[in-house]
């Protein structure tokens, strides 16, 4: 059974100007659809990656997974329980300690006024659990030393801070960790350390990751399954090999072609056309059609459904 089941998930933000401005400028309310009808499932002990450019809604999905944002419609079920509609407080509490998150900015995600020990044990301490020696044990597990527990976050480098974040995420012994761009603020050599650590911990603790990233190389290295997002919609989902070898969706193809390659010396790429459209007024039909090299009439009129092709799922009228 899937650990995470996301059904028809949408999230709309009200981005209207204040009431008085709207009246004076005679404008109606404006809404931004950050996530639109997204479906996917995450198997236990696997890594599911959500990849996309800015405005693709990947971080919004991450926040809905952990319950920081409520869905506008659709459901997120974790271990069969929907945090947004569940009323049994005991069940909510149990699920909350099963989900953790690692954030992008290691400088903003640790309270600068707290000692590392207090930061790490907070998820347990706030529930009244036993915290004796817990911080020290976790620090060693993430490759830091016991003495670091008494220090403040500013005494650590970016990579070390991200290790502290991981230690905090492990404190409540979660099953699922949502990692929102966990290495994009880090240097390459430090990124390698953190990615390796994440892989080790996944094996040791039987963790499930939802990895949110814009970096295709990281996603390919870490993921068991990849979902590609464009303008809040899931356009393609496949295993890394299938996705990178035989991408079906024109957007995925464009993305892979445009990404700089380490061995692409003097590569002359035909750069993709256009930019990501305004999510407040998304294009009709398939959101990608204005930039799509193979777009047809139907793409402008009708939003494509997710279809299964050779074990991959793709939302394109023309893919085969």
């Amino acid at each position: 059974m899937a650990l995470v089941r996301v059904k028809n998930l949408s999230r709309v933000f009200d981005v209207s100007k204040p009431w008085l401005n709207r009246v004076i400028e005679r404008r109606s309310k404006a809404f931004l659809t950050a996530v639109s009808e997204v479906d996917f499932e995450v198997e236990p002990r696997s890594t599911y990656a959500l990849v996309g450019e800015s405005g693709s809604g990947k971080s919004t999905i991450g926040k809905m997974l952990v319950g920081l944002l409520k869905p506008s419609s659709g459901t997120v079920e974790i271990e069969g329980i929907d945090l947004a509609s569940e009323t049994d407080a005991a069940k909510i509490d149990a699920i909350r300690s099963d989900i953790q998150m690692i954030f992008q900015d290691p400088y903003a995600s640790l309270n600068p006024r707290w000692r590392v020990r207090d930061i790490i044990v907070e998820p347990v301490a706030s529930r009244g659990g036993r915290t004796e020696g817990l911080a020290e044990k976790l620090l060693e597990q993430v490759g830091l030393s016991v003495q670091d527990a008494g220090k403040f976050p500013h005494e650590f480098s970016g990579g070390q801070r991200q290790r502290i974040c991981i230690a905090r995420a492990l404190a409540s012994e979660p099953n699922l960790i949502v990692c929102d761009e966990p290495t994009s603020a880090l240097d390459v050599s430090v990124q390698a350390q953190v990615l390796n650590l994440m892989s080790d911990l996944k094996d040791d603790f039987g963790l499930t990751y939802v990895l949110i990233s814009h970096d295709l190389t990281v996603v390919r290295h870490m993921a068991d399954k990849i979902g590609v997002l464009y303008l809040g919609r899931l356009v393609e989902e496949a295993s890394p090999n299938d996705l990178f070898e035989t991408p079906k969706h024109p957007y995925t193809q464009m993305l892979l072609e445009a990404a700089p390659q380490m061995d692409g010396f003097g590569r002359e790429v035909q750069p993709p056309e256009g930019e990501i459209p305004d999510p407040i007024n998304p294009p009709s039909g398939c959101a990608f059609h204005p930039r799509c090299p193979i777009a047809q009439d139907i793409c402008k009129r009708q939003r494509p459904e997710m279809r299964s092709i050779n074990g991959m799922r793709v939302a394109c009228h023309l893919a085969e």
Partner: peptide, 22 residues
């Protein structure tokens, strides 16, 4: 809006505790 506050919300701390302690 900083992530350490989100991390505290995530583990279910009450608004009062977040305001006072964080």
């Amino acid at each position: 809006n900083k992530e350490y506050v989100q991390a505290a919300r995530l583990i279910g701390r009450t608004p009062g505790a977040i305001m006072l302690r964080h």
